[in-house]
Nucleic acid binder design. Structure first.
Length: 856
DNA sequence: TGGTCTCGGGG
DNA sequence: GTGTACGAGACCA
């Protein structure tokens, strides 16, 4: 009998010894100490359908095989099928063997990663605990204590082992400041590090590639090579679980690897001798560090739907999310700082590392991924990628339990074919456009698609196939027929994998929410992350069904879900209108907007709850009262704004709620946003359309009188490439060119953002872009007509149009003072091409017609 | 209104 | 590594 060790599974992989795989489990013990477990003797296998041709091939190739019974994932199956289970020695041989066998028969689970094959077969899940039985060993294969595993079993519900965080930010000395750093030439001169817990009692540390007299947590080295060697030493000594940073996948890690290789240094930064892998494809990059988890704060933020930033640079993210900012230095100043102000350089470097780690920790960005890993069984590193791997891991565990086999990933050709099979979306009810000043209730179906899957047993393994020989026999079974015609065997006869998993997820979520009520502090936050993770997982099944690259894609299944959804909302609308005599003015996928004859919020809520309860009972899905609009302006489907009231405990909180109506856009000046918001506020809260119109008139008057501050008229856009690389004509680029001619030293460079105003003149619009400060100094007049007709009016007009206010009325209409001639207001077109006669309501940005003719 | 193209972050 | 996958916003017919 050996000894036992409890570990939380952080990562897993395998390596080859004498052509045979050894599984490596990187775990964390209860005291936080890392442990690397080795498991020998687990071999790769997969399944292939049984037929003559396959049997011949198996014989030819002398493959180790066994005839077994499994359920195929092709609709509802009443019996098991005979398949061959092929077992190999080396996982790397699988693709070749699979390719050969696939010519003769369908293969299953032949592309399940070997580490997941092992984990699923042993009931292990990422970030869950396991009890290892075996003995400690001395090993050179791991940089942490080794353990030879004889057997292992999953263990439930232990508290998380504390994680060690390590944050990195590199600075390099660019030889060409107008281009991205080049790892072939530009050396790394400084590295900012941040730690949790502390490293040698320091929260942060800056490594410099030259001797310097700087105080604080700084280490200086004589060369870049020594700097890099020190970095490797520190990583090994600190032994992090999480390696993080801002855009490390896109920049720091690949750059660092290039420089390490240049000096012939090791790129193994994990818990064994495996080199760090940095991969780029299709604009997204990833990093793999054996035994640790690479977390790119930038990528996490960009994919987090709960925070939307207008830019995703570190400065913006830090300002918005943790109320801090970078040391105010442009990257072009780095060489000067490095040469002349090493103290400032050091603090700049340190701050970037600190900001990134603080974003991760203070915003608790990893919490829900850890919970997703535990529930889905995916390794934490893989959880950071996408939804598909989470669902498929979760499904694979359940398939294994039921003797079902998983289809292979579709080929590119197959995926392309699937995209042609269009999936129809949710129902959007035709809205009653205009301003509604009666109380409008919003009722929502809670977790609509998961509920549909659960209620109607929607799952590929419950789908009754028409093509099967015994289809008439199958039709005798109790089943549900979806509005799209797809039929699913009744859940009482056989419960599909998706419904089972969703039931478990939703039940676990209720449990987590219940436990949250009596928890506090950290425990409460973990539970909140858990309930959120459970919700995300339950909601992702629908998307998965209709995702062309999903192993279990099936358009009838995805279409069945939305078809049920559409039928459901229509039936609910009819029921509400008939039973309660209330008018449904709008609805989208899982929500209904209902007018009620009361102005009292509490009374409105009571009615909402009554309707929701009655409709839920009638329809069989759970409808819930969500919020109230005191007034609602509907422009079109998916575009509306309302004065929203939501109950928070005992009080009603109000807010302006906008959907699909943009008040902020990159190519709008802030005046437009301000006026939009003013107009919506007046219309919705004061319900005074006349006053809103007057407000717009007032702004127009100020504009033509030159009373609007120039900052409100400035549009800011970024220069993304070198100026000669732009072929079209764009205002901010034209301005940058002008400024370059005036003073090349201060003019905008690649990566800078340029603010411009449009001044009066006869030239092309884009050529009339001007630096606001320059315009002020030279006393240049702004092009008021442009600001009125091209910036302000188009979005404002769309709002006033549904309110029944004509453009002419906004522009002064009749006896109103004509401060400025706005052109032919109210007329259909204001400009026409001299040559071809094509008409425009506004000057096109290019200033001329596509035929080349001039406009008049 | 849709369909294709570009670019993001980092220094 | 038994893997090869983005997504929002700008521009254009």
């Amino acid at each position: 009998m050996g000894m036992k060790k409890l570990v939380q599974i952080l990562d897993a992989d395998y390596f080859l010894k004498d052509g045979r795989p050894i599984i490596r489990i990187f775990g964390k013990q209860e005291n936080g100490q890392a442990l690397c477990g080795f498991y020998e003797g687990f071999r790769p296998y997969f399944y292939v359908e049984k037929n003559e041709a396959v049997a011949t091939k198996i014989k030819e190739l002398r493959l180790e095989h066994e005839e077994v019974q499994r359920k195929l994932p092709l609709g509802y199956q009443t019996s098991m099928a005979d398949v061959y289970k092929i077992t190999l020695e080396n996982p790397q041989d699988v693709p070749r063997i699979r390719a050969t066998l696939e010519q003769s028969g369908k293969c299953y689970e032949a592309d399940v990663l070997f580490k997941y094959r092992f984990m699923v077969d042993h009931g292990l899940r990422g970030m869950n605990w396991a009890e290892l039985e075996g003995e400690t060993i001395q090993t050179s294969v791991a940089k942490v204590p080794g353990f030879k595993i004889r057997s292992l079993t999953p263990v439930q519900n232990l508290t998380d082992s504390p994680l060690r965080y390590f944050c990195i930010d590199i600075e390099c000395l660019q030889s060409d400041l107008s281009r991205a750093p080049d790892a072939k030439r530009d050396p790394i001169i400084g590295i900012g590090l941040a730690f949790l817990p502390t490293y040698r009692n320091q929260q942060s540390l800056v490594l410099l590639a030259k001797p310097a007299a700087v105080t604080g947590a700084v280490q200086c080295f004589r060369s870049e090579k020594e700097l890099l060697e020190a970095l490797l030493r520190i990583i090994e000594e600190f032994d992090p679980d999480i390696i993080t940073g801002y855009n490390i996948n896109g920049f720091d890690v690949p750059y660092l690897l290039d420089r390490l290789k240049k000096f012939g240094l090791s790129t193994a930064m994990g818990r064994c001798d495996k080199p760090v892998m940095s991969k780029t494809f299709a604009g997204s990059q990833e990093t793999e560090i054996a035994g640790r988890v690479a977390v790119d704060v930038y990528q996490l933020l960009k994919r987090d739907v709960s925070v939307r930033l207008h830019r995703y640079n570190l400065d913006t993210a830090a300002k918005v999310l943790i109320g801090q900012e970078k040391v105010n230095v442009k990257h072009t100043e780095i060489p000067t700082m490095w040469a002349k102000d090493i103290a400032r350089f050091t603090e700049y470097t340190r701050k970037d590392a600190l900001l990134a780690i603080q974003l991760l920790l203070e915003r608790r960005m990893l919490g829900k991924f850890i919970e997703v890993a535990k529930i889905s069984g995916t390794l934490l590193q893989d959880c950071l990628k996408g939804q598909t791997v989470r669902i498929e891991t979760m499904v694979l565990h359940e398939f294994k339990k039921r003797g079902l086999v998983m289809p292979s990933r579709p080929s590119d050709a197959e995926a392309a074919k699937r995209i042609e099979e269009k999936i129809k979306g949710g129902a959007v009810l035709e809205p009653k456009r205009g301003l509604h000043v009666d109380t409008v209730l919003v009722l929502d179906f809670q977790a609509l698609y998961p509920s549909i899957i659960k209620t109607f047993n929607v799952s590929i393994d419950a789908l009754l196939l028409d093509s099967s020989a015994n289809s008439s026999a199958l039709s005798e079974l109790r089943h549900n027929t979806a509005p799209n015609g797809a039929r699913f065997v009744d859940g009482a006869v056989y419960e599909g994998v998706f419904p089972t998993l969703i039931k478990n997820l939703l039940a676990a979520r209720l449990e987590a929410k219940r436990a949250m009520k009596i928890a506090s502090g950290d425990e409460r936050r973990v539970l909140d992350a858990k309930q959120h993770a459970l919700k995300i997982l339950a909601n992702s099944f629908y998307g998965y069904c209709g995702y062309a690259r999903a192993r279990l894609f099936r358009s009838e299944v995805a279409n069945a879900i939305t078809a049920y959804g559409r039928e459901n909302i229509e039936r609910t609308r009819t029921f509400v209108e008939k039973t309660f005599g209330a008018q449904v003015i709008y609805g989208d996928t899982d929500s209904l907007f209902i007018k009620v004859p009361t102005t009292d919020l509490n009374e409105a809520q009571r009615i909402g709850e009554e309707i929701a309860a009655a409709a839920s009972k009638q329809i069989g899905l759970h409808l819930e009262f969500e919020k109230i609009y005191r007034s609602l302006l509907i422009l079109t489907k998916k575009r509306y704004a309302g004065w929203k009231f939501e109950r928070k405990g005992e009080i009603w909180e109000d807010a302006l709620d906008m959907r699909g109506i943009e008040t902020v856009r990159r190519d709008w000046c802030t005046l437009v946003s301000d006026v939009m918001l003013d107009v919506l506020n007046i219309v919705l809260k004061e319900r005074d359309v006349g006053k809103a119109a007057q407000h717009v008139k007032g702004v127009l008057r100020e504009l033509s009188a030159g009373q609007v501050p120039v900052e409100k008229l400035t549009v800011v856009k970024g220069i993304t490439r070198s100026l000669d690389a732009y072929d079209g004509i764009q205002p901010h680029v034209e301005l940058a060119r002008k400024m370059q001619k005036r003073d090349p030293t201060t003019s905008p460079k690649v990566g800078d953002r340029v603010g411009y105003v449009i001044i009066r003149g006869k030239d092309l619009l884009s050529r009339r872009a001007e630096d606001p400060e320059y315009a002020r100094q030279k006393g240049l007049q702004l092009d008021v007509e442009y600001y009125v007709n091209s910036q302000l009016l188009p979005p404002i007009e769309r709002i006033f149009e549904v309110l029944g206010v004509e453009k002419g009325e906004l522009l002064g209409g009749g006896k109103q003072v004509n401060m400025f001639d706005f052109g032919a207001a109210g007329q259909q077109s204001v400009l026409a091409c001299e040559s071809c006669g094509r008409a425009w309501r506004r000057t096109p940005l290019s200033g001329r017609c596509e035929c080349g003719g001039t406009l008049k």
